[in-house]
């Protein structure tokens, strides 16, 4: 199986997401960065499929030059080829520009080395959460797409994909080449091994530009949701608080 995984570099905020003074971006001056969680699982899933069935895992991101960090991380946990489509505007592109940039790269990569049997996306990106880039790519390629996937089995020429619903799951049988959007929980991503870390330093990153144009959606500003400030009532210290805790449970009618 030839698999492509599209991942996004996102900041990893702690107790609060701070915003830059121009209100256009998350203030990342004190933050680390990570791979958006659903996509971290997509990389793991692709790696497991290739370990079992053979093939290759190409990891692609559209982002600033620093997004090389997320591709190298992917290299340390299983990817084989790495593509960075550079956006050095300092801001995320809108969904149309991002999906067109990904499509441009796919066209070149497939022309050179053949079609991907499977393209994996996250269900949604952790920050923007536009819920559409994978689907836009799939429709432009004329390939089937299903989101919300929490399990993939590979059979001859088809994939069985399980989609989480409240009380269980739905089963889809999708012919390849296919596009799936996965959710965290589909697997437990491995941690990099020492060997993986060394390999990731040597991994070659295919950097490319994009000629995709902006779409009609424009970000005006970011702002904080309204917060209800609560006065915290301290019920006590350590085990001495047990009586008060049980009183509270009783009061709330859950005892």
């Amino acid at each position: 199986m030839r698999i492509l995984v599209c991942v996004k570099r996102v900041p990893a905020p702690g107790s609060r997401i701070n915003i830059t003074p121009d209100a256009l971006n998350v203030d990342t001056s004190h933050l680390g960065f990570t791979t958006s969680p659903h996509e971290e699982c997509a990389v793991e899933e692709a790696t497991q499929i290739v370990e079992e069935h053979g093939g290759s895992v190409t990891v692609l991101t559209v982002g600033p030059p620093e997004a090389e960090e997320q591709l190298r991380y992917a290299a340390s946990v299983g990817g084989s080829d790495f593509v960075l489509v550079i956006n050095d505007s300092g801001e995320d592109w809108d969904p149309q520009q991002t999906s067109n940039a990904i499509l441009e790269a796919i066209a070149d990569l497939e022309a050179a080395d053949g079609e991907y049997d499977l393209i994996l996306f996250g269900n949604e990106s952790a920050d923007a959460g536009g819920y559409q880039i994978g689907i836009k790519v799939a429709v432009a390629l004329g390939r089937p797409a299903v989101n919300g996937i929490k399990g993939i089995d590979v059979n001859d020429g088809a994939l069985t994909a399980r989609r989480e619903v409240d009380i269980g799951y739905e089963v889809y049988t999708v012919p390849t080449p296919a596009v799936l959007g996965v959710k965290e929980g589909i697997n437990l991503p491995r941690y990099p091994t020492m060997k993986g870390r060394l390999a990731s330093k040597k991994a070659e990153i295919n950097k490319r530009e994009s000629s995709a144009l902006p779409g009609p959606q424009q970000k005006i500003r970011l702002h904080q949701p309204e917060e209800t400030v609560t006065e915290t009532q301290i019920l006590g210290d350590g085990s001495d608080a047990a009586v008060k805790i049980v009183d509270l449970l009783d009061e709330l009618g859950v005892l």
Partner: peptide
């Protein structure tokens, strides 16, 4: 955005 931790005007 961010699953509701942040809002965006678009």
């Amino acid at each position: 955005q961010w699953g509701g931790s942040l809002l965006e005007d678009s």
